[in-house]
Design a binder for these strands. Structure first.
Lengths: 211, 211
DNA sequence: GTAATTTATGACAGTCACTGACAAGTGACA
DNA sequence: TGTCACTTGTCAGTGACTGTCATAAATTAC
């Protein structure tokens, strides 16, 4: 598993090159002012190839965040079944930050740069939220499975919606200063989670609580 | 003010005709399968004119929901300053339902039909959430103003994000059966608001609570 | 009432995101 | 080394969206 083969390595290289080139161009001249042709030209690749790596233009900026969400989903699946839903979700969110702290330095820088571009570009921010919502369905399914509740139960929807709100405040609404540093991001997430816990009644995310 | 002038009346008529035609086509053949040219042709208007009424294709389905958000903002502004933020936001949300219940029957039907199309179309659902998020900034500003907190205070962000989450669960995640009836929508909103209140500690949305 | 002015619309040309199809090049593997 | 699978470039096309200019209709001035 050490070497994924030359072909696979080339692909990853092209993918990262496209992301880097796109982020640079987006920062320089703005997102809408940048054409896919420009990005492709910067990596010396045909525009058609760009769309073989990324389904849409916004994807090139959002794919890293999407990877983070996959990490979160995976972490959630490993949490013990008797853990309270909101607690399990909190740990899953922390896993994303941990992944950044432990990962390659270049990868972390790229991730934070992507966040910077996303926060500065309304269209990308919108896309980011869209992804978050799509992911919400999967989170709801997982929480619902853990709790054994039916698919039309309000509680899982409620818990996940609330958690997503907290995560958004923690992750996305960062001050520009916070964007430089992963640790600042982690601190922000923690303080938001603390605020959430101090605002909610104990056991609120368990069925049968509101008597 | 009774008569806004012939020109203005014509414009409103065209606007509603475009919305109705678009919603019908979206329901019949799906959103992406419907072209702007088709919508324009159905109303006997040039495609260029369509874009003079709606900035984007998705706008034609989302504009009614956008109107609802304006109503909410306006209602929020009239709430007493000493009212707790979440309570004020809840009343503002109720104002949207009230507006539907009291409004023209055709308008209500159109609104519910738009919701139906939006819920059935991922792209439109995403756009709907996007609008909600964009609106969040204005809600935060208003809550922040009411509370007299600084712009970098976490609490207004937190309160509004939580409220948006609740509103989404109440408004958007409706069962198909609920879409026929405004009263069912109202009931759903109320039960979600109740769930939220029973989950949160009293005074959580006021500054200085979590000692 | 008619003339002047504003405003909505249509027609046309153009940009850009995105896609299907086919041909050519390159790594994988026997 | 030769075959196979996969990746890429080229090309042609669709559809969303925009700028521009001329025309027609509504509003206002006279």
């Amino acid at each position: 598993m050490r070497r994924p083969g030359l072909r696979e390595r080339k692909k990853q290289k092209t993918r990262l090159a496209l992301i880097d080139a796109a982020l640079s161009l987006f920062l320089e001249q703005g997102y809408e002012a940048t054409t896919v042709d420009q990005i492709a030209a910067a990596v010396d690749v045909s525009p058609r190839t760009f769309f073989r790596y990324f389904a849409t233009k916004e994807d090139v900026a959002l794919s890293l965040a999407a990877d983070g969400q996959e990490t979160m989903l995976a972490e959630l699946a490993t949490r013990p079944a008797d853990e309270a839903p909101f607690t399990a979700l909190s740990h899953a969110a922390r896993a994303v930050v941990t992944m950044l702290q432990e990962g390659d330095l270049d990868d972390t820088a790229r991730f934070l740069r992507a966040r910077e571009v996303i926060d500065a570009t309304p269209a990308l921010f919108a896309g980011s939220v869209r992804r978050l919502m799509e992911n919400e369905r999967r989170l709801i399914a997982e929480i619902s499975r853990r709790q054994g509740t039916g698919p039309d139960d309000l509680l899982p929807h409620f818990v996940v919606a609330l958690f997503t709100a907290v995560a958004r405040v923690g992750f996305e609404l960062c001050e520009p200063a916070d964007l430089d540093d992963v640790n600042a991001l982690a601190a922000r997430l923690e303080s938001t989670l603390t605020l959430a816990e101090s605002s909610l009644r104990p056991g609120w995310d368990r069925p049968g609580h509101p008597v």
